[in-house]
């Protein structure tokens, strides 16, 4: 006999899976309110799609599947809302011939020790939040979802050239922010 999973009463979903779904979402979406909104939408979408539940996966896996789509939808929406940032982060650093205008600051000889400091991570977190959303999304998909570049391009509907540029800009800005807010201050 085949073992089929069945759905529990949707009224119990929040109690059963709410925290797990939220945890997953909060790590991927910048604002908590937005994360809660996405979890709510997931439950409502699940409710509507109950009859499509095949029972091949567990209820939890099924709900997570819906959630992942909702998060990607959210990214795409953000992608459209956001004006593509046209500011050139490089202009301050490179001259017309593409050479560094001035040397970069030398960072602490042992930056590894920064990693153990709580304050460092607070600064780091602030620098991440200062990035344009489209840049952070790339990191989230890459690291949290372990997506490869094709997957990311597909999810965000961008070209791979666009993806490399975005990563480059994001890293460039992060480096600058860490230098200004951490390494130049701690010396």
């Amino acid at each position: 006999m085949e073992n089929k999973n069945v759905l529990s009463n949707p009224a119990d979903w929040v109690e059963l899976y709410g925290d797990q779904l939220l945890k997953y979402t909060v790590a991927r979406v910048r604002h908590r309110e937005a994360a809660e909104e996405i979890v709510q939408e997931t439950f409502l979408a699940g409710l509507k799609a109950q009859k499509n539940f095949s029972g091949r996966s567990s209820e939890k896996t099924w709900l997570f599947g819906i959630l992942k789509h909702k998060i990607i939808d959210h990214y795409r929406k953000k992608e459209k809302e956001q004006q593509v940032s046209t500011e050139d982060p490089f202009v301050e650093y490179f001259d017309g011939r593409g050479h560094w205008k001035k040397s970069l600051e030398k960072w602490d000889t042992n930056p590894q020790k920064a990693l153990e400091q709580k304050e460092f991570w607070e600064v780091f977190s602030r620098c991440i939040s200062n990035l344009p959303v489209d840049m952070e999304q790339v990191f989230q998909l890459k690291i949290l979802d372990k997506m490869d570049s094709d997957g990311i391009c597909e999810a965000l509907q961008i070209t791979s050239a666009n993806l490399w540029v975005r990563l480059h800009r994001a890293r460039f800005k992060m480096r600058e922010c860490l230098e200004k807010c951490w390494f130049m201050k701690t010396g």
Binding site: V14, G18, D19, L22, K23, V26, A27, L144
Partner: peptide
């Protein structure tokens, strides 16, 4: 970030 446990 994943380790943090935000409850509803």
């Amino acid at each position: 970030k994943l380790d943090k446990d935000p409850a509803l």
